[in-house]
């Protein structure tokens, strides 16, 4: 469903991604691990369509469609979802208004009718309850004054609501204590589905104890230097990234 071929990207003249190849099939969970500065977050932004990055080579196709020509909103409508490492605060936009606007925008893009408000309210309440998101939080402006854990839960709530076919989780575990991590992981696991794929980007193995991947890739200096099964993550936990970085340098 997702095919990344020889992807090169740079920002302000620096090459960040230097030839990424990755194929993701429906139902699969791929973990992408790597040290700081390896290009993990860049990969997630490039997939979601952030304009600061210039794609110099390669391609991203999703369900057979070329993604590079599409804007971020069109990719979202196509079913891609990025859970941000640092969710953005938007004062003045109520969380509820935002959710409704986003959901209906995607529905419209897919040729569906807007969801009537009562149904929408019901849906949000249901999903919010699972993720321990209080009605009070939904009334506040988007992400404003949310704690780190609240922001991550709100991201997963959006994911649950928008029902994407590809979820990209960028360092979703960062800044979470163990209880928050459990709630967030449960929320994610609930969304596991034979028709839905996930890319879990993380520095540490601990998230992968909760969200168990099918494939693990090691990213270093903008390239995938090793791929394997979930045992690769444990290996990394034990030996660190040094081996891979050294290999690169040699």
């Amino acid at each position: 469903m997702l095919e990344i071929k020889n992807l090169h990207a740079h920002v302000e003249g620096n090459d960040i991604l230097r030839g990424i190849d990755l194929t993701v099939k429906p139902g699969e969970i791929h973990a992408i691990m790597g040290p700081n500065g390896s290009g993990k977050s860049t990969l997630s932004y490039v997939l979601a369509g952030k304009e600061d990055y210039e794609i110099t080579e390669g391609s991203i196709t999703y369900n057979g469609k070329d993604m590079l020509d599409l804007g971020a909103d069109e990719r979202a409508a196509a079913g891609m979802f990025l859970a941000f490492q640092y969710p953005i605060e938007i004062p003045g936009v109520a969380t509820m208004t935002f959710l409704k606007t986003a959901l209906n925008a995607q529905r419209r893009a897919r040729g569906q009718e807007d969801l009537p408000t009562p149904e929408f309210m019901k849906l949000v309440k249901e999903k919010a309850k699972d993720l321990n998101v209080s009605p009070e939080m939904l009334r506040r402006p988007l992400n404003v004054g949310f704690s780190g854990g609240e922001k991550k839960r709100a991201e997963i709530l959006q994911m649950a609501l928008l029902e994407p076919s590809l979820c990209i989780l960028d360092e979703t575990d960062s800044g979470l204590d163990i209880d928050a991590l459990r709630i967030v992981s449960e929320g994610v696991n609930k969304l596991r589905d034979p028709n839905r794929a996930m890319i879990v980007i993380t520095h540490y193995q601990r998230l992968l104890n909760h969200i168990v991947p099918d494939h693990v890739h090691v990213l270093s200096r903008g390239k995938i230097v090793k791929s394997g099964g979930k045992e690769l993550a444990l290996e990394l936990e034990e030996n660190g990234y040094a081996d891979f970085i050294d290999e690169e340098a040699a």
């Binding site: 979601a48 804007g71 971020a72 909103d73 979202a76 941000f84 938007i90 959901l103």
Partner: peptide, 25 residues
């Protein structure tokens, strides 16, 4: 631009996202 990207990443078309942000402002 970061706010705009966030809204677009949730599927809101650019023109609508801009209006939302102006209203919020």
């Amino acid at each position: 631009e970061d706010l705009l990207f966030y809204l677009r990443a949730r599927g809101i078309p650019e023109a609508d996202a801009r209006k939302m942000l102006i209203l919020a402002f």
